[in-house]
Computed example of a mutant assay.
Amino acid sequence: MTRVINWCVVMLVLSNARLFLENLLRYGVLADPTQVIPLFLKDPYSWPAMCLLIVSNVFILVALYTERQLSKGSFSELVGFLLHCINMAVMLTFPAAVVLLVPSVTPVGGAVVLGTYTILLLKLYSYKDVNLWCREMSTQKAKKLARSLSCEQQVCYPGNLTLKDIYYFTFAPTLCYELNFPRSPNIRMSFMFRRLFEMLFFTQLLVGLTQQWMIPVIQSSMKPLEDMDLSRMTERLLRLAVPNHLLWLLFFYWFFHSSLNFTAELLRFGDRQFYKDWWNSETVTYFWQNWNIPVHKWCIRHFYKPLLRKGFSKMVSQSAVFFLSAFFHEYLVSVPLRMFRLWAFMGMMAQLPLAWFVGRFLRGNYGNAAVWLSLIIGQPIAVLMYVHDYYVLNYGQETN
């Protein structure tokens, strides 16, 4: 069995090396780092995405101010809850409105902004919850909630309500707030610079492969999609599957290993479990639980378990988690592109029946193959659908 797998890997590498060489011979060298700048800036004198990132500090300060007033008893719990809800609702709608209404916001810039605001929204929700739990507990139980490496470093509520604390949490590679995070004893300079080098190297590699391999395939797919030529659409989809998945794997390593570890080392953040062995997933559920540990921990702590405590069944709670994830996937894709097609939403919700089927009928290597197949084929379908619709909306009239 191992020899067969090794043979398949060798054949896969050779066949895709041939495709890559064919791409170079047909299109020449397309990689150009200077072409990345227009993806972020449409007008060199207008930086709306950067302005939105700076404005995000207002929401952080509002959350801190609200918690300080609640700790002193100046606000009732109802008033504090309403202020947090308003703050987070504005965080969700304000950047989206700016991205939709300001023409100088590029799709890539909009995606970066909305991704940042989404992460901040989840962080501030956790910040609100943990401080509420501390107020509901006795002083003794609140001290048990605070986790630290030494008694001298321990912070107890409300001593955590400081600018330094909330901004450390804002930049820390986690979505779940704690009064005392595990800390490393020192910064390992060699480890940090290796991660920094990886970040820079993989950034250039991702850009080059996208320009050289992805864009030509996507551009050549527009005509078959417009003509609804099923055979050619399938051929383009299969051609797109390998480079798309390779880029996804490289992005995963760049973000979850290099970037998060670099940030953690810089901040001496002790919890480095950003992912587990998702590549060994024999079920779809195992994959979603282990490929993105920070999001999984947040969903379990602040969404899934609260639903269970309210009396909802496990099936309903799991479906609600998938629905929330599908909503944010659609939010992060459709708003920057200024179009609502629900391809990301439907793709995420399709994971529910797929998870049920794989968990019930497939096991071992067959289940693992089904998970990998859903990743390799599912993503290119969504990419083609979005790119096609974006092309038709923005450039279709020009070509007619």
Rank of each mutant, 00 (worst) to 15 (best):
M233D: 11
S220M: 07
L196C: 14
R268H: 05
E226Q: 15
Q211Y: 05
F262L: 15
L237R: 00
E265S: 06
T234F: 15
L246K: 06
R183K: 14
W248E: 10
Q273E: 14
M222N: 05
M228Y: 14
H257G: 03
L225Y: 10
L225K: 02
M192L: 15
M192E: 14
L200F: 12
P243N: 07
I218F: 09
F256Y: 07
F201V: 13
W213S: 11
H257E: 13
L205N: 04
T263V: 15
S259A: 12
S190M: 03
T234I: 15
F202Q: 01
L267V: 09
A241V: 02
S190R: 04
D227H: 10
R236H: 11
I187C: 01
M192Y: 13
Q219Y: 10
L246A: 05
R188W: 02
Q273S: 11
S221M: 13
D229I: 08
F202W: 04
R194M: 04
S231T: 09
H245R: 01
L237F: 12
D229P: 00
L225G: 02
F201K: 05
S258V: 10
R268D: 11
F256R: 00
M199V: 04
W254T: 00
A241M: 03
R232G: 05
A264P: 10
L250K: 01
M222E: 10
L267M: 15
L237W: 14
L249N: 13
N186C: 08
W248T: 14
R194W: 08
S258C: 15
E235F: 11
I218M: 09
F193T: 15
L230P: 00
L250R: 06
Y253T: 07
M214T: 12
T203L: 07
M189S: 10
H257Y: 12
S231W: 14
E226Y: 14
L225S: 05
M228V: 13
D229K: 09
L250G: 05
N186I: 09
T203G: 10
L206I: 11
K223I: 06
S258T: 06
L260G: 01
W248N: 06
M233P: 08
E226G: 07
L249T: 05
L246Y: 04
V242W: 07
L196T: 12
S258W: 13
R268V: 06
E235R: 10
K223S: 01
L240E: 11
F201Q: 09
R194I: 01
L206Y: 03
M214I: 11
R194K: 12
L246R: 02
R268I: 08
S190V: 06
F191A: 07
G208F: 09
F262G: 00
L238C: 12
R232P: 02
R239F: 12
Q273N: 09
I218L: 14
R272L: 08
H257M: 08
H257L: 08
S190W: 04
T263H: 07
M222K: 06
L260F: 05
Q211V: 04
R272A: 03
G270I: 07
L196E: 01
S221L: 13
D271I: 06
P185C: 00
R232W: 14
T234D: 05
W254L: 09
S259K: 00
G208R: 06
G208K: 14
H245N: 01
M214E: 08
H245S: 03
L250M: 03
F193E: 07
L247W: 00
T234M: 15
E226I: 13
S184Y: 03
L267Q: 14
S221H: 13
M214F: 08
R268A: 04
L266F: 03
R195F: 06
I215A: 09
